[in-house]
Design a protein around this nucleic acid. Structure first.
Lengths: 340, 340
DNA sequence: ACATTCCCTGAAAGCGTTTTCATATGACGG
DNA sequence: CCGTCATATGAAAACGCTTTCAGGGAATGT
């Protein structure tokens, strides 16, 4: 069977016995359409199995029904989870998602090229591109609605969704203290990211508040990478007086700590407790599985889309403070009571 | 500064002193355009910083400059790597990428809706949607170029890119045999997937060829999941006479084997060698790191895009046999000599 | 009764491209 | 010197929608 050419709005109009204008009105909310014609048009939609053409709509109107999802790199549990959330939420609202990679260099030029080539209803910005200031400025200047997920810095005029890193890291630190640990190490994430700084601040504050000593030689930077975590863990664990627990700022680095402990013949959690952060799939695949903090990655993205759609539809509640999403402490096998 | 409205092809035509037709011709390959006008138009492009509007092009012409990337679920190293490859290759060719989630149910309806809403130059199909037969039929019927990545089954008329699972699994099995293992277990992937069956077949053949006994009680199914791997590993390792090595059909299940070994006090690789497959990020994060097979995931996607673009531009070399990409054996710490 | 408003309705003018179609020019073979 | 052909060029007609504009009728106010 020949792929019968797709029905257009004109066909619908003919079948429904109305003008294309009326059909268009039905398509866009049905305001100023009498009930009987409304029904007639909808019947025609069904009968013809009509789907409006996105390109024509974008060309002719204001709306685009397409949201841009901007990445530096889509790999990794964290980011692909965000993608899934975006896709799910966007799909539900009848939007399509255009994914674009914004390389390390020439980001701005790429963005400009993108928005002059395709009309986007709005964009979702994932880390780290959500912190590219001139990119954000460009978006504002072109009046393109945007929402940032887990941004590091503040930026007026663009809403954002994030988690409360401070609270979560506080909870995690308290967990270790409650288990009896008094010698606790810490592996810092990528200091470029505000969340890395927040987690560290919470750690320090929690120690101080509990009257637990914080030793600088038990702190090292791992850049959120497994490899960096390896180096950091080796540095910390090779101290003559070593900690009985290490709080790594993310799961990858926590896995690295476990690897190093293994290397050195330390048993986890008997000799050393280890904690992660994020609850990526790695957290449960490693043995022992990581005690960690679960981020509601997909929900964050869905929330971001929700906010974006509000912005698009003109309702601008002008939320300037980031929307905070709740995290969940997940206890697994990598933490245990402090050794005597 | 006000966001000066984007230049159109008309502006370019005026600046270059030619007709829009000529500008359009330059945009589409510059055939039948005299050298001087060609230069004039290109200068106008630069001067105005012109970018052609995608929606208008799609609406008016045959081409769409947009490729669809179809997922069941974009999460996981494997799939997000494919996405990156697609994005990279697409971007380089000036194409944009629309990502769509095709749920478990209603896939076909979703696809039909998609293609009647937006014009796609072609689509890339990732597993498992690349095996959805009626979806493939629809694509063919609508004459939409497509390429499948790592499909399980054959489908005439749609090219595909995959790895040689049989050869890779053979190499892996030989590796274990060479290390002296004679009691080798195997964890099967998801039998729905042809690759799972291929890997098992290679394993069996390699054992047979080497005259090594294959014991059914050392084989279990793990469904390519960590959790399934856990169950499978427990079943195999709880045998009174247990194997000295286990070949898991992917990294997730291999990590599960390590977890179970840990549980049972078996040292890897001293007491038990473990191998994975895929070389996802998990493979190096686990300790000991996994001996595994690296799949060139990104390159596969890039190759798929390349083939797709050839199809789109009309060159139809009509490749019916899948394009095979090379894998790489990666030796890490999880395998060692068989215990005495 | 008459203006004023509000709800419907459709004709027609875009939106920014690509694609015919028509025409012009120069080159070429006989 | 005349058809034929390949190369250049632009005017104008799509492509499938949204939006503006200009009524027409019914309801409301005076």
């Amino acid at each position: 069977m020949a792929p019968k050419s797709k029905p257009t709005i004109i066909d619908v109009a003919r079948v429904a016995g109305v003008s294309v204008t009326t059909v268009s009105r039905v398509l866009n909310g049905g305001k100023y359409v009498s009930p009987d014609k409304l029904v007639a048009v909808q019947e025609a939609f069904d009968k013809l199995d009509y789907q409006p053409n996105l390109h024509a709509r974008s060309l002719a109107g204001e709306r685009a029904y397409m949201i841009g999802l901007l990445f530096d790199d889509p790999r990794g549990d964290y980011l692909s989870g965000m993608q899934r959330g975006t896709l799910l939420a966007g799909q539900k609202a009848g939007y399509h998602v255009l994914v674009e990679l914004l390389g390390r260099t020439g980001t701005l030029a790429q963005m400009k090229r993108l928005i002059s080539r395709v009309r986007l209803s709005g964009v979702i910005l994932t880390p780290p591109v959500c912190d590219h200031t001139s990119l954000l400025n460009t978006l504002v200047r072109h009046n393109i609605p945007a929402v940032r997920i887990s941004p590091s810095s503040d930026f007026p005029g663009i809403p954002s969704v994030k988690i409360d890193d401070y609270a979560a890291a506080t909870e995690m630190t308290r967990h270790l203290i409650t288990l009896g640990h008094r010698k606790i190490g810490f592996i810092i994430g990528d200091l470029e990211h505000a969340d890395a700084r927040e987690r560290q601040r919470a750690f320090n504050d929690a120690l101080a508040k509990a009257g637990v000593e914080a030793r600088p030689e038990w702190v090292a930077e791992g850049g959120y990478q497994f490899s960096g975590g390896l180096t950091a863990a080796r540095k910390i664990l090779s101290q003559p007086d070593r900690p009985t627990a290490i709080f790594a700022s993310n799961d990858d680095m926590a896995a690295a700590v476990i690897a190093v402990a293994d290397e050195m013949g330390l048993r986890v959690p008997t000799d050393l407790s280890v904690t992660g952060f994020d609850d990526t799939s790695l957290a449960s695949a490693v043995s022992p599985a990581l005690t960690t903090i679960r981020q509601p990655v997909e929900q964050m993205a869905m929330k971001a889309v929700e906010i974006l759609l509000e912005r698009i539809s003109g309702e601008k509640p002008e939320i300037e403070t980031p929307v905070m999403m709740g995290t969940k402490f997940v206890r697994r096998g990598s933490t245990g009571p402090a050794p005597k």
